[in-house]
């Protein structure tokens, strides 16, 4: 019965049904420091999963294990498994193809120092799209998806660095969408933005979850409560509590979660 329900949204492989992401017993070390301790978490398709916790609790680190951006960090070692649609991303998967499927938006907007158009077209070109007309279509549809087409359609050839912070961040979202990913990871995407831009990005996330799986790290608990379906609370590298956002915020099972969301620390 439950199995049948899951089949609607999950990914089947043989007889097994997998969520979009299934993380099992994940440990992560920076040198001798253990940053993640035995984390288990399932992230479903078409949901927004929020990760909250005080600074240095491992939530961003966890996010970066999902598209293997931690591989760049020297001295970073990962054990355990991260299954994307049932396939282990650390098990011989081409890391570039993984990152094509799992896009990422960073804390600080990081557009390339080139035009708006070139910023968006960079990803598709990387993955073999050459035709000008096709690129034009991708640029327009990505900017539309990121709700910034109307603002930028007349300045596609202008430098992306001349945009405001909020516009830059939505441009970065459009850039991530341009390679047609399944999952969008957002690492505190609004922490450098003003309230109005923040509102726009939150609205956008709501819109995007219809097509994508979204995992967002945030310092802002109101934000997590507003936009997410599931919430995970990290503390000192451990996933303390994970469940439906309403439950985590209204009736947390763990005392530490309650202390954190009521503002007693962090």
């Amino acid at each position: 019965m439950i199995n049948n329900d899951l089949k609607q949204i999950g990914y089947t492989r043989g007889d097994k049904v997998f969520p979009k992401f299934r993380v099992k017993d994940l440990d992560l070390f920076y040198g001798n420091f253990q940053a993640l301790k035995s984390v288990d978490m399932d992230m479903e398709a078409n949901e927004i999963t929020a990760l909250i916790g005080p600074s240095g609790c491992g939530k961003s680190t966890f996010l970066k294990t999902l598209n293997r951006m931690n591989d760049i960090v020297p001295g970073c070692r990962v054990s355990g498994s991260v299954l994307l649609d049932g396939t282990d991303v650390y098990g011989g998967m081409d890391v570039n193809l993984l990152r094509k499927r799992v896009g990422m938006v960073f804390q600080k907007p990081n557009p390339f120092p080139s035009s708006v158009y070139d910023n968006i077209a960079y990803g598709p070109k990387t993955h073999g799209v050459r035709k000008k007309s096709e690129l034009d279509d991708i640029v327009e549809s990505s900017l539309r998806q990121a709700a910034i087409w109307d603002e930028l359609k007349d300045r596609l050839k202008k430098s992306a660095l001349g945009l405001s912070g909020g516009q830059q961040q939505r441009l970065c979202i459009a850039r991530a969408l341009a390679v047609r990913p399944d999952v969008l990871l957002m690492d505190e995407p609004t922490s450098a933005l003003d309230p109005i831009s923040t509102g726009k990005i939150e609205e956008l996330a709501q819109e995007l979850k219809k097509e994508y799986t979204i995992v967002i790290v945030t310092h802002n608990m109101q934000q997590a409560a507003r936009i997410s379906d599931k919430t995970g609370f990290f503390l000192l590298g451990e996933l303390i509590e994970f469940g439906a956002t309403d439950e985590v915020f209204d009736s947390p099972r763990d005392k530490r979660t309650e202390d954190y969301i009521t503002g007693r620390f962090g």
């Binding site: 570039n96 193809l97 094509k100 896009g103 960073f106 600080k108 390339f112 960079y122 990803g123 390679v179």
Partner: peptide, 20 residues
């Protein structure tokens, strides 16, 4: 952050170096 942005789009090392 430029390099990270490129890697996160699935670009390899060489492409990141030459294009970004």
């Amino acid at each position: 952050t430029f390099r990270e942005g490129s890697f996160a789009l699935g670009a390899g090392k060489l492409r990141t170096i030459f294009r970004v």
